[in-house]
Amino acid sequence: MSEPLIQCRSLTRTYTRGTETITPLERLDLDVMPGEFLALMGPSGSGKTTLLNLIAGIDRPTSGTLHIGGIDVGGLSRSRLADWRSRAVGYIFQLYNLVPVLTAYENVELPLLLHRMSGADRHSRVAAALDLVGITDRADHYPRQLSGGQEQRVAIARAIVADPAILVADEPTGDLDKASAAAIMELLGRLSREAGKTLIMVSHDPACAAHAGRILHLDKGRLVEHAAATVGAAGVTT
């Protein structure tokens, strides 16, 4: 059996707001295997997004350890953490967060600007990512010219273009209609199954979460329940 890609031990995150101390995540232990599709569920304020942000390296644990691919992510300097994110993680936001002044192509190209590669290499990788998410014909469009579903496809292309091992998605269908949400979930499932990406997704929607191989429920910063899911051709059973 292979080693876990992500290992959290006693992972705790505390914020101070004025005189109040908030602990959205408390002494959490979690292992995520390579290629696993994990869904995080729970009520608002349960710590799902905090855990996602810690795994994505955009937040730091207050205590505990977080090892990803053997690297102590919590111990990296600000610059090294940025470099690590550019290589290892692709982040998919609920509200897409595309840069409005850039075209779909330029948005997808953004992460590659950080890597040493020729313009031709960059072009071929952007074209491949746009093709994979089925949005090649909208490459020259600006975000305002795209539908929500199309914007999220561009955001997914941006997340995968640098070929990271881990994809994190924070309610990726939260702002989409049912049809678009289903298409996006199908795409994410395909990335997990066919491209072998380790996918960690926060969702409030049980139907979306059911696409995952494992569902974790959080409440008040603690893990409360594990559920295994099996993705079927027509639906999901847990």
Partner: peptide, 15 residues
């Protein structure tokens, strides 16, 4: 502010 946070999420260093 959000856009710069997105760029940093993608791996853009603070500098």
């Amino acid at each position: 502010v959000r856009e710069h946070a997105v760029l940093q999420t993608l791996g853009f260093r603070s500098g």
